[in-house]
Nucleic acid binder design. Sequence first.
DNA 1: TATGAATGAGCATTCATTCAT
DNA 2: TATGAATGAATGCTCATTCAT
Lengths: 201, 201, 201, 201
Amino acid sequence: MKAEERKQMILDCSKKLFSKHGYYNTQISDIVKSANIARGTIYQYFSNKDDIFISLLEAGYDEWKNTISAEIEGVDLLKLEPKEYLSLRIKNSLSYFAKDPEMSNLILRMGYGLPENLVKTINRLDEEIIAQITDEITYGKETNILRKDLNVELAANFLIGAILRIAYHYFVKNVTKNKKDDINKITDEIVSMMTTGIFAS
Amino acid sequence: MKAEERKQMILDCSKKLFSKHGYYNTQISDIVKSANIARGTIYQYFSNKDDIFISLLEAGYDEWKNTISAEIEGVDLLKLEPKEYLSLRIKNSLSYFAKDPEMSNLILRMGYGLPENLVKTINRLDEEIIAQITDEITYGKETNILRKDLNVELAANFLIGAILRIAYHYFVKNVTKNKKDDINKITDEIVSMMTTGIFAS
Amino acid sequence: MKAEERKQMILDCSKKLFSKHGYYNTQISDIVKSANIARGTIYQYFSNKDDIFISLLEAGYDEWKNTISAEIEGVDLLKLEPKEYLSLRIKNSLSYFAKDPEMSNLILRMGYGLPENLVKTINRLDEEIIAQITDEITYGKETNILRKDLNVELAANFLIGAILRIAYHYFVKNVTKNKKDDINKITDEIVSMMTTGIFAS
Amino acid sequence: MKAEERKQMILDCSKKLFSKHGYYNTQISDIVKSANIARGTIYQYFSNKDDIFISLLEAGYDEWKNTISAEIEGVDLLKLEPKEYLSLRIKNSLSYFAKDPEMSNLILRMGYGLPENLVKTINRLDEEIIAQITDEITYGKETNILRKDLNVELAANFLIGAILRIAYHYFVKNVTKNKKDDINKITDEIVSMMTTGIFAS
DNA sequence: TATGAATGAGCATTCATTCAT
DNA sequence: TATGAATGAATGCTCATTCAT
C-alpha cells in the first residue's frame, strides 16, 4: 500500500471512531486496531492525536466549502432568481452533510468529546427545549398566527439553531459592552427576518 | 458556611473552570483549588465529576426555561401582536444568555470538552465559513438582491446557525432514508421562511 | 443507652459486617450506618478500625477458650475414659463454632480481608484439592484399604486441615533448617496417628 | 528479556511481596519498583492487581496438585502397603510446601490480606489456643493416657488444624440445619479416627 | 458525649508517545 | 518504513480520622 493510501486509510478509520465515540473516548490503540497497523506506525503519518483530528476537520471543512462553491461555478449569480440562488446554496450545504454523516457529526454536533452519559443528558435537555418551542409553534398554527403550512419540527430547529448561534456569537465569543441595546437590536432584526425575510422587496 | 452555600460555591467555581477549559481539561484538583476546599470535600456534595457537570447543565437549562416562561406570565398571548410575541420570546432567551456568559458557553459552544488547540482550529475553520457567507450577503446587498438594512454579521450567523442545526437534526441525529427528497423539501421550507417569514399573512 | 451497651452494639454490627465482607471491604461508614450512630461517635469507643476488629477477635477467642474449659470444670479428668475426654473437648469447640457462625467466620476462614473475586478463586481452588482427596478416600474404601464406615467428606477435611496446618506451622511460620529430615519425621508421625491413633494402647 | 521471562519475573516479585505484606499492603508501585520496570509495563502483562494475585494462586495450586500426582505415577497403588501409600501422599504435599515457603504462605496462611498488626494479634491468639492444647497433650502423656512417643507440638497442630477445618466446613461454609446431631456425629468420627485410625483393620 | 462536615494522603489504572530492533 | 514493548505522568476517587460545634 502506498504511503498516501495508508494515510487516507488511517484518516477514514479515525473519522469513524471519532464520530462514534468522540475525541477523548477514541484511543490511539482503537485507531491502530481498526486500521490494522502497529502502534508506532501512526506516528509516521501524523505527529500526534490532535494532528489526526485536525486533519479530518480541515479536510471536512474544505470539502464543505468546495461543495458549496463547486456547483455554483458556471452559474451567473445575477441571472438567477434570488430565491433560486438561496435555494441552491442551502441545498448544496445540506447535500454535503447528508452525504457524509460521520464527518457531519464531527463538524456539527455539540459536546463531542464528552463522556457518553453527559452527551445523553445534553440531548435530553435539548429535547425538552425543542419540545417547548414545538408546542408553541403548533399553538401558533392552530390560532392562525403562524402559517398553516409551516413544518413545525423544521421551524423549531431552524429558530433554535439561529438564535443559539447568535447568542453564542454575540454574548459568549464577542462579549459586547452594551448588552441591553444589543439585545433589542438583535431581536428586532431576527423578528424582521422571520417576518418579511431577507430579500429586498 | 452552610451546606447549600458551599455546594453552590463549588458549582460556581466549576462553572468558571468548565466554561474556560472544557470538561476534560478541568481537573477535580483545579476545582478544589479554586474553591479552596479539600480534595475529598467535593465528594460530600457530588458523587463524581460528571455529577458536577450535569448539575450545572440541569440548573442552566432550568433557568433558561424559567427565564423564557417567567416573563410571559400575566401576558395574554392572544392579545399580543404576533410579532411582539415572537420578539418577547427571543428577547428573553437572549437576555438569559447575555446575563451569564459562562453558563451560555456550557450550553451553546460546540466542541466543549476538546483540547484547547482543537477548539482554536475549529474556531478558525468556522470563521472561514462565516466569512464566505458574509461576503455573499454583502454582495447580495450591493446588488440589491437583499434588503439594504440587513445586518450582515447577524444574518450570516442566523443562517448558518439555522442550517447547521437542521443538518444535524435531519442527517446526523435522525438519519432519514430518502435524503434527496428531504433535502429538497427542507430547502424549500427554509427559503420560504427566509422569504415571507413564518407568519400567516 | 448506656455506654457499655452502645459499645457492644457497635461490636455486634461490626461483627456482622466484617464477617460478611471482610476487613477491608467493611468501611467505618458501613458500621456507623448499621449502628445508627454518627461517624465520630465510633471513635469515642474505639481508637480506630483495627481496634474494633481486634476487640472482636479477642472476645471471640476468649469465649472459645471459656467454652472449652467451662464445661470441664467439675469433671475429674482422670476419672473420664480417655476417649470420652477427647470427645468432650472436641464437642465443646464444635459447639462454640456452630453457635456463632459469624464469629467463627472471623476466626476460621482463610483469606478474609481479600476482595470478593479473590475469595471466590481461592474457594474454587480449594474445592478442587478437596475433590481430589475425596476421590482417593472413596477409592480406598472401595478397595478395602480404608474403613468402610469412614465419612469421606469429613475425613477429607480432617486430613487436609491437619496437614495444611502442619505445613504452615513447620514450613512457613517456623522455617526449619533440615527440611528433609523434618518431612520424613512429620510424615511418619501423621501416618502413625492416622493408623493407631493418639492413645496409649 | 523475553516476554514470558518478564511476566515470570513480575510474578516472582509479586509473590515475594504479597507473601510478605499481604494483598492490600502490596502496592502496584512496590511491585514495579521491585521488578525494576515502569508503572505501565505491568499492565501489559496483567489486566489488574487481582489478575496478578490470581495468576500466582492458580500456578501455586497447579504445582501443588502436580507435585502430589507426579511422583505417584508408575507406582501401583494396590501394590503399596496402605501406610506407605498414605505416607507417600503426605510427604509429597509437605515437600511442596517446604520447597516454596512464599507460595505456601499465600496458600496456607489465615488472614492474609489483613494489616500487619491484625495478623500479629491473630497469631498471638492462635498461639494461646495451641498452648492450651499443648499443655493438655503433655498432661495426657504424663498420665499415660496418650502415647509416650507422641510429638506434642505436632499433635497439637494436627488436631487444631483438623478441627478448625471441619468447623469451618460444616458450620460456616455449609450451614446445616440440625447442628446438634451433626456435632455429635462429627465428634464421634473424629474420635474414632484419632483412636483406631482410618485404615481397615 | 454526640455529631458529621472536612480533611488529604494514598492508589489503581489509563494512554499518548517513544525508540530500539 | 514498520513494529510493539516500554514508558511514566496524570487523574478520579476512597476512606480512616479529626475537630469545631
